[in-house]
Design a protein around this nucleic acid. Structure first.
Length: 682
DNA sequence: GAGCACTGC
């Protein structure tokens, strides 16, 4: 197979930012800067598309409570808008402009860029706050970038967010759970503190929905003064900066989009003479590896005179080193092909991409409240996602996006991905809302209401766990657990560690289960090596050598610390250095909460029975018993569960016949992850 | 006898 002819229908140019309108270079540049490098920065700032809208934005923020800013990524809103506000005097001493991001890297990298533009050291006038890292100054910081989760947490300490004059919720179209919770809280705060200004920044599609949300007034009660006649919220549209991206569809649907992706990569490489790298969106690791292997079979057939093709995988399971390879600049005679999961849709930006190939699917986690199980399923992408994926081709020059589905399929795609709050376990969010004084969940103004069944299921869980009393209010232990940055079952485990005298070990286990992907699966030899290494921790490391996943995690952690937290040690034992280091941070943070709640740090001194009893007390809802065919039945409703192949319990019969597990994941089968054997009479 | 979208506190 040498060349493949592609039958693509091209309906003409469309896609993000088809207008190529950028700020003209002839505009007068006003410079207040004292030196040349600052002059360069100032000129750059004024060339951004958002600069033309500066006065309009400032006027709207002065006049309206809520400004919904719509613009493509790259138009400068994240970096410029907080600076405009700062320059216009919105952050006098004692008040701060907050800008929230759904991801940690975004908060840190944007803060550092803005600090540079402002001409200040990061952490002085411009800072950031993410979990484990507060690079801000209580007195000096005027612009603060932060993760939305951190600002939500701050509302638990300061319910009116009184130190902020303006809160900008960035990337609101992603509808992360904390974005939704924050929008609800902010709408409430605005009633009590009208001086607060809110900016919601979003990509196009749902701007009208957000406008209606803020302009509706359903929860108005008698003791709150009526709002002014003028609408609460207004939309400001910014022009995009992105280059046009031509969209091409398949004429006929494909039954195997991985193979179609390989064909399309090959044809693009041979037919498109213009240099530029290729980015392919697939749904998961397995597909990426198949795509890579099928592509490598074609490589020897590359005709003479063509540039080389350099394929690279990109997904979250890779080590940092492997991930960094996709950013290496391409030599002149090589074309890079990055074959990626959804991580490249928003989290990771690779420069130099000119061609995007989109399989049209994504893996999404969905919580089913009636079964209390969450499952990972492959579903068609939304139109918003497809637009975002296509936009990855137009960051530095005009590009092309090949969609591996038909134009009519494209029209039937849902407009946007359902908000996270509609497909997640609400136990923790509801506990936190209760801690914020939202007692009546039906009156809380959700941007999108979660399914009633999810709310009921979460309330039932919280009542059973003793976090909420019969009156619907938080119990004293509920108030404490609401503060803890862990799930309800883990918090219970930490609290009962006092009775079982194993605080030290439970603390470590709590940190380790909070980190995913501790054990690395090496490229090529799926599972085998990792399993070998994992078994070392179960059998050879440490005194607690039962075959239990929780104890294996404990042993791995202790060994990591004992061998000096070294990254090369991790590499040799198929452990993720990133994950292990994160566990160290989480453990330190949880330790502070234990100190605050007066929980002792006893060690069980190798008495694994006490430790396992303590685990059982936390995972009291997650029990299962072994049955003859090697599967398990859940204690709660007799469902069929299987042991996850990553578990050290995989294909071993528990002596007692009973286990508790950390979580259930439903993919092709229903798997219990992180398992510990218990005695039935516990 | 066989598997791992992505975030966040």
């Amino acid at each position: 197979m040498a060349t493949t002819s592609l039958q693509f229908w091209k309906p003409g140019t469309q896609g993000p930012g088809s207008s190529l309108d950028r700020a003209t270079e002839s505009e007068e540049i006003i410079v207040h800067a004292p030196n040349l490098s600052a002059l360069g920065i100032q000129a750059q700032r004024e060339r951004l598309p958002i600069f033309k809208h500066r006065e309009k934005l400032l006027y709207c923020i002065e006049e309206y409570g809520v400004v919904i800013v719509v613009g493509e990524t790259g138009c400068g809103k994240t970096t410029q808008l907080p600076q405009y506000l700062y320059e216009a005097g919105w952050a006098p001493p004692g008040s701060v402009i907050a800008c929230t991001q759904p991801r940690r890297v975004a908060a840190t990298s944007v803060a550092s860029r803005v600090a540079n533009e402002v001409g200040t050291i990061l952490g002085d006038e411009v800072g950031y706050i993410i979990r484990f890292e507060d690079v801000s100054d209580k007195d000096k910081t005027r612009i603060c970038y932060m993760t939305d989760g951190m600002l939500f947490r701050e509302t638990m300490i300061d319910p009116l967010l009184s130190r902020y004059s303006v809160v900008m919720i960035d990337e609101a179209h992603e509808r992360s759970i904390y974005t939704d919770l924050l929008l609800g809280i902010l709408k409430k705060i605005r009633r009590k503190r009208p001086a607060l200004r809110i900016i919601v920044s979003s990509a196009t599609l749902d701007a009208q929905g957000l406008l209606d949300y803020f302009n509706s007034n359903t929860a108005l009660s008698n003791n709150i003064p009526p709002l002014e006649q003028k609408p609460e919220a207004v939309i400001v549209s910014l022009e995009g900066r992105m280059f046009p991206v031509e969209i091409a569809y398949l004429d006929e649907p494909t039954s195997d989009y991985v193979r179609q992706a390989v064909k399309t990569i090959w044809a693009t490489h041979l037919q498109q003479k213009a240099p530029g790298d290729i980015l392919v969106f697939l749904t998961g690791r397995e597909e990426i590896e198949r795509c890579l292997s099928e592509l490598s079979e074609l490589l020897p057939d590359l005709p003479k005179g063509y540039p080389q093709l350099h394929p690279l995988p990109l997904h979250a399971g890779l080590s940092t080193d492997e991930q960094l390879m996709v950013f290496e600049p391409t030599p002149r005679d090589v074309r890079k092909v990055v074959i990626s999961t959804n991580i490249a849709e928003a989290s990771v930006t690779i420069e130099g991409i000119k061609y995007v190939i989109d399989c049209g699917f994504v893996k999404i986690r969905t919580y089913n409240p009636s079964s209390a199980l969450s499952s990972l399923t492959t579903v068609p992408v939304s139109r918003a996602s497809a637009t975002q994926r296509a936009g990855r081709a137009g960051r530095t020059a005009p590009g092309i996006c090949y969609r591996l589905y038909t134009a009519s399929t494209a029209q039937s795609l849902p407009p946007s991905t359902s908000p996270e709050i509609t497909r997640t376990d609400l136990a923790t969010p509801i506990l936190q809302l209760k801690a914020l004084g939202v007692d009546d969940l039906m009156k809380f103004e959700w941007v999108t209401g979660p399914p009633a069944e999810s709310v009921l299921r979460a309330l039932e869980h919280l009542v059973a766990a003793g976090m909420i009393g019969a009156d619907g209010r938080l119990t004293p232990s509920g108030e404490k657990v609401a503060e803890c940055p862990v799930e309800v079952s883990i918090a219970r485990m930490l609290f009962s560690s006092r009775d079982y005298k194993c605080g030290e070990e439970v603390l470590t286990i709590s940190a380790m289960v909070a980190v995913q992907d501790v054990f690395i699966i090496p490229e090529g030899a799926p599972g085998a090596l990792a399993e070998l290494e994992r078994r070392k921790f179960t059998a050879e490391e440490g005194p607690l050598n039962d075959t239990q996943d929780h104890l294996t995690l404990l042993n791995a952690y202790n060994a990591f610390v004992r061998y000096g937290r070294s990254s090369s040690w991790c590499k040799n034992h198929a452990l993720s250095f990133r994950a292990m280091s994160r566990a160290v941070s989480i453990r330190a943070q949880l330790k502070k909460y234990m100190v605050r709640f007066g929980l002792p740090f006893d060690s069980c001194q190798g008495d694994s029975k006490r430790l396992r009893q303590c685990l059982a007390s936390g995972y009291w809802r997650n029990g299962a018993r072994w049955v003859m065919d090697g599967s398990y039945r859940s204690v709660r409703d007799d469902k069929v569960f299987h042991v996850h192949p990553n578990s050290v319990m995989f294909n071993r019969k528990p002596k007692s016949g009973w286990v508790v597990f950390h979580e259930i994941e439903e993919t092709k089968k229903t798997h219990m992850r992180i398992i510990t054997e218990i005695e039935p009479d516990w």
